[in-house]
């Protein structure tokens, strides 16, 4: 009995330690963001890398997502012969839920994992210690640009992605479901509001913050050689994914 308790206690302690580390790191990152002038080159590099890395994947995912949502809604709509609702059914879910979530997951996988892997490798090859030995503070140098790049790119990509998803949906509607695209677009404009789009975009910002925080933390605090890097990436994407779903629920519940 005591060993079970000890086990739970140990897990809880290590979890708390992890959360504490992550919080401290995030607060420090935020603080340095406002107080220190960031390295311009690193900044630009991060933006470019994150954007270029994730753009094609997000576009492809978004197109497919739109198509899938239309197919699924199509089945329901066909049952009730309510073709005018197809745009609404697919669009609403896409803009508010499925779009941001899938783009977030894809982004977490492509960018978050990569970020953690890079930082993790730098950590275990002692490059971060080397930076500090050269009197360069690693947090404004490494973490702030990445944080900023991830959050801003996530927002932009969700914006573009949502658009792409609607395009994908329209194409699918016309060619697979034989619902005229004009009807589909009319349905979108009729039933969807800007608030739906904004809702999804606000979620994406929070997802971006979560992904940036988590991936920075696990990369920066890696230990244990090559195996440790793999494990850090694993933890990073898992925590990002859970955060995305939890945040999705919270924002969806509290925001109209």
């Amino acid at each position: 009995m005591t060993s079970v308790l000890a086990n739970i206690g140990r897990r809880w302690l290590s979890l708390s330690e992890g959360v504490g580390q992550m919080t401290l790191l995030t607060l420090t990152t935020w603080w340095k963001f406002w107080t220190t002038a960031p390295d311009r080159i690193e900044f630009m590099r991060s933006l470019y890398k994150v954007g270029v890395q994730s753009f094609p994947i997000v576009v492809v995912t978004a197109l497919l997502t739109g198509a899938i949502m239309v197919i699924q809604s199509g089945q329901l709509v066909a049952q009730y012969e309510a073709y005018g609702l197809l745009g609404w059914g697919a669009g609403y879910a896409t803009l508010r839920e499925v779009g941001p979530i899938l783009i977030g997951l894809m982004f977490s996988g492509r960018v978050g994992a990569n970020n953690t892997a890079e930082l993790g490798t730098m950590r275990i090859t002692e490059q971060i210690d080397a930076l500090r030995a050269l009197a360069i503070d690693p947090i404004p140098y490494l973490l702030v640009p990445r944080f900023f790049a991830i959050v801003s790119m996530m927002f932009l990509l969700t914006l573009v992605g949502n658009l792409m998803a609607l395009v994908g949906g329209t194409i699918t509607s016309q060619f697979l479901l034989q619902v005229d695209w004009r009807l589909f677009v009319w349905s979108l404009r009729e039933y969807l509001h800007l608030s739906d789009l904004f809702n999804g975009l606000i979620k994406s910002v929070f997802f971006g913050i979560a992904i940036a925080t988590v991936s920075n933390h696990f990369g920066y605090h890696t230990s244990g050689g090559a195996v440790g890097v793999g494990r850090a990436v694993n933890s990073s994407v898992v925590f990002s994914a859970v955060s995305i779903f939890v945040l999705d629920f919270v924002i969806g519940y509290f925001l109209p």
């Binding site: 995912t61 894809m106 994992a113 490798t121 090859t125 050689g225 890097v229």
Partner: peptide, 18 residues
């Protein structure tokens, strides 16, 4: 080396998701 492991892990999650 460890870069390779990181790259492989990233590739796995991206390719699987796609």
């Amino acid at each position: 080396g460890s870069e390779g492991v990181g790259a492989a892990t990233t590739k796995a999650v991206v390719n699987c998701s796609l």
